[in-house]
Simulated scan of single mutants.
Amino acid sequence: MAPESSSRSRHTVPVVTRAADLQPRRPKRPKVRLSTAEIGVLVLVTILVLVTIAVPLRNYFQSRSEIARLNESIAAKEAEKERLLTEIDKYEDEAYVREEARRRLGLIEPGEIAFRVIDPGMETDSTVTTSAEELIEELSWYQILWDSVATPPADDPGGVFMEE
């Protein structure tokens, strides 16, 4: 029996002793190395995908902001329209038109007597208009020059270049 025991010792039975050995073994994947051409193609594809997404998104947000701006403009125009319509209604009222004619133009109804109140503190002064000297002092030199060239003098009806 001794030979049998020696044959048993040659064959070892695996013993599971570690937790790592309890996990099923996955085959190791080989590391993938990309060439520079493949990396360039990958970058170009990524850029193409980003551009195809970014352009429509930019257009969407621009159109949304344009719509919001136009809605605000429409609301402002509608408010202006309402204000103008109420003003038109006001001018269509006969009593308002009569009152404005009295206030702005000084018109009176037939049979009414108009009175004009004159301030008693005002003095009647004969020098209501300005004299030529005061006018010249108020004008600048280029205004005086332009006036002398633009209008011919009254004492020279024939002009300077006409000789008899």
Rank of each mutant, 00 (worst) to 15 (best):
P24M: 10
S73F: 03
E4S: 14
V117K: 12
D119N: 14
R10W: 01
E66H: 13
L50Q: 07
V16G: 11
S6G: 12
P153C: 12
D21W: 03
E164M: 03
I118S: 12
R18C: 05
P30V: 03
A95C: 02
L105T: 01
S65M: 05
I47V: 08
I88T: 06
A75P: 03
E99L: 03
V15G: 09
D21M: 07
V149C: 04
H11C: 00
T46K: 14
E38T: 10
A132H: 07
S35Y: 07
R102Q: 11
W141Y: 01
M122E: 04
E80Y: 05
V45Q: 13
N71T: 06
Y60D: 12
E94A: 15
G106V: 01
A19D: 11
G158S: 06
A132V: 05
T124P: 01
E163K: 15
F115L: 11
I108F: 09
D21Y: 06
E138H: 08
T12E: 04
E38R: 12
K90Q: 08
E123N: 09
E92W: 02
P120I: 13
L84K: 06
G159C: 03
E4G: 14
R58K: 01
E72T: 10
P120F: 08
I74Q: 10
R33S: 08
G40L: 02
L50R: 06
E109R: 15
A54I: 01
M162N: 11
A132D: 08
I108L: 04
I118D: 05
Y96C: 00
W141N: 03
R26G: 10
W146A: 15
E100Y: 04
V15E: 12
E80Q: 14
L57A: 15
T12F: 05
L42M: 09
P110R: 15
V160N: 09
M162Q: 02
L34R: 12
I39T: 08
V55K: 04
I136G: 00
D147P: 00
A132K: 12
P30T: 03
A76D: 12
T129C: 05
T12A: 09
S5H: 13
G121S: 14
K31E: 12
E66V: 05
T12N: 04
A19L: 09
D21L: 08
L85C: 03
E138Q: 10
E92Q: 14
T52Q: 07
P110N: 15
E164V: 07
Q143K: 02
A114D: 05
G159F: 00
T12Y: 02
G121W: 02
T46G: 06
S148A: 10
T151D: 11
